[in-house]
């Protein structure tokens, strides 16, 4: 059940080089020096593909953004920024983002501890050849004081239709913030929740160890998981007919529509995903719906069609693609 609710885990460490102005206050020459030093250090450790953002086409950057490998801030800095991506796409090291270095690891399911271990090892190796900005009292120094100390943000991505449909989001946000954690829309700062996806992460970075922070986020995610299961049961007990109708209507539109936008498709696929999770609709393979959710953005549809489509062409292509995948998947 966990894996249907806890979609993914992300660890991020922020680091800066000693004796270099932070990215927001730098000049082209120093920024390029930072990029070169970090890329040199990275080329010595494990298998990373190194990219300078200015050499990447905008649709490639866009796709990396959707896959959470880079941030929009990194794209904004594309004249000076770069990214190193591991062969299996789980680790990415951004250079000249808000901080000189942002090391991050993204794993599926509830996997924060493992993600932290992976990043901690890489950080160790980078720290052996780079001089990080560090203060004995304040720890690792970051461009924004909200990240100082550990430089750690541990986040868990959660699929919470039960809590959403029973109108308990605000209560969850209140409870979570009392632990010093925060809830965001799935796609990072400032974004709103779409497709019932939420991101739970630590708000503080100083005064607790990395292990304590990871532990706190993980145990909170598990508590929310319990609440989500209870909310889903409540929905089934009180609104089963209504919910079944919603799920089957969503399935009906997805299997028969002629054109569909990303946002409508996201909303309807999320309903089908919920329906499959709680057995209101039987699918041969539930993971197909999660896969579709990752692959219907304009960038992904363009890539899949191998053409630069207009918006209407794209909406038709998306409808045809989703229909084809989903129709073959239902068990009656």
């Amino acid at each position: 059940m966990n894996s249907n609710i806890i979609v993914g885990s992300r660890i991020r460490l922020a680091r800066n080089l000693k004796n270099q102005a932070f990215t927001n206050n730098t000049d082209l020459e120093s920024a390029n020096n930072v990029l070169t030093s970090v890329f040199n250090a990275l080329s010595d450790i494990s298998n990373f593909n190194l990219y300078k953002c200015k050499n990447l086409k905008s649709d490639v950057l866009e796709e990396m953004l959707e896959d959470h490998l880079i941030s929009s801030e990194l794209i904004n800095n594309s004249d000076i920024s770069g990214v190193a991506i591991s062969a299996d796409n789980t680790v990415s090291i951004m250079v000249n983002e808000e901080d000189h270095i942002r090391e991050q690891c993204f794993l599926e399911g509830l996997n924060l501890k493992r993600a932290y271990d992976i990043i901690s090892d890489i950080d160790q190796e980078l720290g052996a050849s780079l001089n990080f900005a560090y203060d004995d009292e304040l720890g690792f120094l970051t461009a924004c004081p909200t990240n100082v100390g550990t430089g750690l943000r541990a986040s868990v991505m959660m699929f919470l239709p039960g809590i959403t449909l029973t109108n308990n989001v605000q209560e969850m946000v209140n409870a979570v913030s009392s632990f010093g954690l925060c809830v965001r829309g799935a796609y990072g700062e400032g974004s709103s929740a779409s497709g019932y996806l939420f991101q739970i992460s630590n708000q503080f970075s100083l005064g607790k160890t990395e292990e304590e922070i990871v532990q706190l986020v993980e145990s909170t995610a598990l508590k929310i998981c319990d609440l989500e299961i209870r909310a889903r049961k409540l929905l089934l007990d009180n609104n089963k007919d209504l919910l079944t109708d919603e799920v089957l209507r969503a399935y009906g539109v997805l299997s028969n529509c002629y054109k569909i936008s990303t946002s409508e498709a996201t909303e309807l696929l999320s309903k089908v995903k919920l329906g499959a999770d709680i057995d209101l609709i039987k699918l041969k393979d539930c993971s197909v719906v999660s896969e579709l959710l990752k692959n219907i953005s304009p960038t992904k549809i363009n890539k899949l069609s191998q053409k630069a489509l207009t918006e209407i062409e794209r909406d038709k292509f998306r409808a045809e693609y989703i229909g084809r995948v989903i129709k073959n998947n239902r068990i009656y």
Partner: peptide, 28 residues
């Protein structure tokens, strides 16, 4: 945002005031 690592010394007291509001303690 700060401009460099040294800014933490320059603006020490102001930074500590704002850290006090968001961080559980001021020691790493």
């Amino acid at each position: 945002l700060l401009g460099c690592a040294e800014c933490y010394k320059t603006f020490n007291s102001i930074i500590k005031q704002s850290l006090q509001k968001i961080q559980p303690s001021l020691t790493h």
